[in-house]
Computed example of a mutant assay.
Amino acid sequence: MLLRSVSNPSCLVSSSLSQRRLLSGIPSVPLAYDKYIPLNGNETERPLVILHGFFGAKRNWQSLSKAFMRDLQRPVYALDLRNHGSSPHARPMTYLHMAADVLDFLHKFSLSNISLLGHSMGGKVAMSLALHPETPVDILTHLIVSDIAPIRAKPSQDTIQHFEGMEQIETGGITNRKDADKILEGYEKDPSVRAFLLTNLDVNSHCSPLRFKVPIDILKEGRPEIESFPWVPGERTFNGRTLFVKGTKSKFINRHNIPVIKEFFPGAIIGELDTGHWVHAERPDEFRKLVLDFMS
């Protein structure tokens, strides 16, 4: 097995018609990635490409990426989407811009017969790419969407509070993670969620005070788009093999969303696991088996 990490420096909302219809005119950014190659040396054929969620990064998928590579004997690529992880910071933060970034990555590395897996925001990026008329019809063989629906959602109060807490950390002269967690506790009571958000602290730059690696201003500005979706039911469909994985304790996919999912993805299979929103982190073995069974 080979592992390589490449880093590059760096309410309802509707997009404009020009944004919604074209990928070719959208400038893309080069995405940082981790690459997991099986012993047979295959780097391009039938890869699994993984897209993380909001405030996430490719590092969150290291263990599962290695396991998928081992079980599938196929290459696995875990990407950092724009404004996350080690990828460049760039405006605007829309699904079509992120889809253009991913499509450019697939073309750059000559990937074919791709299985595309996305969690939460990454799931919406994956769906946006699958549904887009400029995406080659034969490039995707499987689409796996983890705990998100293709809907235009209302603003999340939790996310608004998370931004407020992170801004307080950046402006508060904080020099250690413990104090940062104490500030964030005033905005988020769940320690696991706080720990997840604090993985974005830039602890290796020797900066004092601490700052976040992600651009809070760009992400906050793009939040309405992140909670939206480029299309409404009836505009586009993807007829390829599609799996939605729902956490039974999560509200991101609910009974009202199922008909919408079926309108966009007529052949979609919907699997459930006894988890909250972070399905792959809470039940990694069960999640892996569900995905492997679907792909086989």
Score class of each variant (00 low, 15 high):
Ile174Glu: 02
Ile174Pro: 06
Ile174Gln: 04
Ile174Gly: 03
Thr175Gly: 03
Thr175Phe: 11
Thr175Arg: 15
Thr175Leu: 12
Thr175Tyr: 14
Asn176Val: 00
Asn176Thr: 01
Asn176Pro: 02
Asn176Asp: 15
Arg177Trp: 11
Arg177Gln: 14
Lys178Cys: 04
Lys178Leu: 09
Asp179Arg: 12
Asp179Ala: 11
Ala180Pro: 08
Ala180Lys: 05
Ala180Gln: 09
Ala180Val: 05
Ala180Asp: 11
Ala180Cys: 08
Asp181His: 11
Asp181Met: 13
Asp181Leu: 08
Asp181Tyr: 09
Asp181Ser: 14
Lys182His: 15
Lys182Tyr: 12
Lys182Pro: 04
Ile183Ser: 07
Ile183Tyr: 06
Ile183Leu: 11
Ile183Asp: 06
Glu185Cys: 01
Glu185Pro: 00
Glu185Lys: 13
Glu185Phe: 08
Glu185Trp: 07
Glu185Gly: 02
Glu185Thr: 00
Tyr187Leu: 04
Tyr187Asn: 11
Tyr187Met: 10
Tyr187Trp: 12
Glu188Lys: 12
Glu188Val: 09
Glu188Leu: 10
Glu188Pro: 02
Glu188Gln: 15
Glu188Cys: 11
Glu188Gly: 04
Glu188Asp: 09
Asp190Phe: 06
Asp190Met: 06
Asp190Gln: 14
Asp190Arg: 15
Pro191Val: 01
Pro191Ser: 09
Pro191Phe: 07
Pro191Thr: 05
Pro191Cys: 03
Ser192Asn: 15
Ser192Tyr: 13
Ser192Gln: 15
Ser192Arg: 15
Val193Pro: 02
Val193Lys: 13
Val193Gln: 10
Val193Cys: 01
Val193Thr: 05
Arg194Tyr: 01
Arg194Phe: 00
Arg194Met: 01
Arg194Lys: 05
Ala195Cys: 06
Ala195Gln: 15
Ala195Tyr: 13
Ala195Glu: 15
Phe196Ile: 00
Phe196Thr: 00
Phe196Asn: 00
Leu197Pro: 02
Leu197Ser: 02
Leu197Asp: 10
Leu197Cys: 01
Leu197Ile: 00
Leu197Ala: 02
Leu197Met: 07
Leu197Thr: 00
Leu198Ser: 03
Leu198Met: 12
Leu198Thr: 00
Leu198Asp: 06
Leu198Cys: 06
Leu198Arg: 12
Thr199Gln: 15
Asn200Thr: 02
Asn200Ser: 11
Asn200Trp: 03
Asp202Thr: 06
Asp202Arg: 10
Val203Tyr: 08
Val203Trp: 03
Val203Ala: 05
Asn204Asp: 14
Asn204Cys: 09
Asn204Val: 03
Asn204Thr: 10
Asn204Gly: 13
Ser205Lys: 05
Ser205Arg: 03
Ser205Asp: 07
Ser205Glu: 07
Ser205His: 04
Ser205Thr: 05
His206Cys: 06
His206Val: 01
Cys207Gly: 14
Cys207Thr: 07
Cys207Ser: 14
Cys207Phe: 09
Cys207Met: 13
Ser208Trp: 07
Ser208Met: 10
Ser208Asp: 13
Pro209Lys: 08
Pro209Ile: 01
Pro209Ser: 03
Leu210His: 03
Leu210Ala: 00
Leu210Gly: 00
Arg211Thr: 07
Arg211Trp: 11
Arg211Asn: 09
Arg211Gln: 14
Phe212Glu: 04
Phe212Lys: 08
Phe212Asn: 07
Phe212Met: 02
Lys213Pro: 04
Lys213His: 13
Lys213Asn: 14
Lys213Phe: 06
Lys213Trp: 03
